[in-house]
């Protein structure tokens, strides 16, 4: 009985904070826009029967999304930006996490603390700070011009490059922490054994360290890729108007066009775009694990 209670807690959480809100959004996505409070027509009321309800059901808003290239391009563009950012974040984070895991034990809590430290400042303010660094007369351009590296200021603000920088910076801790956790667990005796058997360090890294850190790599990549795909703040503040991302398109649909039904449909499709491949990946992993046994 006690165990059931314990197990039910996370499921209850999932029900209240994920499934119910999701169904509300899904319900709105089936309705039509209206000039009223709230700004959409109800999909069903209790007076009509099940048959009538089903006959009235249409997926008009979904058809609309897939018939207009804007939405499809926004999804692809967001996936592309998130994908590239994830790879770059991994490349930046891995050496940092590796260094942390190899640092003297007594330093490590301090180093972990330093990685978490930026969270003490509001995310929004940190993104704003990047405007001051990247803009035409910003810190970066002043610095490079004073050094004589460039003679004309670089245009980074309001370009896709600024969005990549913003995403890599903002999500770096989410990549470092799982990487560090898995690297830190690796038994140093394994590397010593590899060296004793004549393996050069780079070979030991690729054949011992990296495979053992894969769970951390995967966790980090998911933690960066998923939120980056739906990111709104970074492309809005740092990107240009032509930096398409689905989060921005969704915002425009909801606030600018006050079309809640289409905005909800965009959100439902975004969820499917992200959830389906992840679930497939997970079940594949599960199968491999079964097969390995």
């Amino acid at each position: 009985m006690r165990r059931w209670l314990l197990i039910s807690v996370p499921y209850l959480w999932l029900l209240v904070f994920f499934l119910i809100p999701f169904f509300i959004v899904f319900k709105i996505s089936l309705s039509d826009i209206a000039t009223a409070i709230p700004p959409y027509t109800p999909v069903f009321d209790f007076s009509m029967g099940i048959g009538e309800f089903i006959s009235k059901l249409d997926f008009e808003n979904y058809r609309f999304i897939f018939n207009d290239s804007l939405y499809v391009n926004s999804y692809f563009s967001a996936l592309k930006i998130a994908g590239i950012s994830t790879v770059l974040t991994l490349l930046v984070a891995y050496p940092i996490a590796y260094g942390m895991a190899r640092a003297p034990k007594e330093w490590q809590p301090t180093l972990v603390m330093l990685v978490i430290l930026p969270f003490w400042t509001s995310f929004l303010i940190r993104v704003y700070a990047w405007i001051g660094i990247l803009k035409k007369e910003g810190l970066l351009n002043l610095f490079l011009m004073n050094l004589g590296v460039i003679s004309e200021p670089l245009t980074i603000m309001n370009t896709p490059l600024a969005v990549y920088i913003g995403i890599i910076y903002s999500y770096l801790p989410f990549m470092i922490l799982p990487l560090y956790a898995s690297l830190e667990k690796i038994n140093p005796a394994l590397l010593e054994a590899a060296a004793d058997l004549g393996s050069p360090p780079w070979k030991s890294f690729w054949q011992v360290t990296f495979p053992l850190s894969l769970p951390g790599v995967l966790a980090g990549c998911f933690l960066v890729f998923i939120p980056a795909t739906g990111e709104f703040v970074i492309p809005d503040l740092l990107g240009g108007s032509d930096t398409l991302m689905i989060g921005k398109t969704l915002w425009g649909e909801f606030f600018g066009n006050r079309d809640w039904p289409v905005a909800s449909a965009v959100a439902v499709v975004l969820l499917l775009v992200l959830v389906i491949p992840i679930v497939m990946f997970q079940s594949n992993q599960e199968k491999e694990r079964e097969a390995a046994r």
Partner: peptide, 13 residues
């Protein structure tokens, strides 16, 4: 800071 934000709050009721 935007009409859109105000409108969304008003239309949500």
């Amino acid at each position: 800071d935007s009409n859109e934000l105000l409108e969304t709050k008003l239309l949500a009721g």
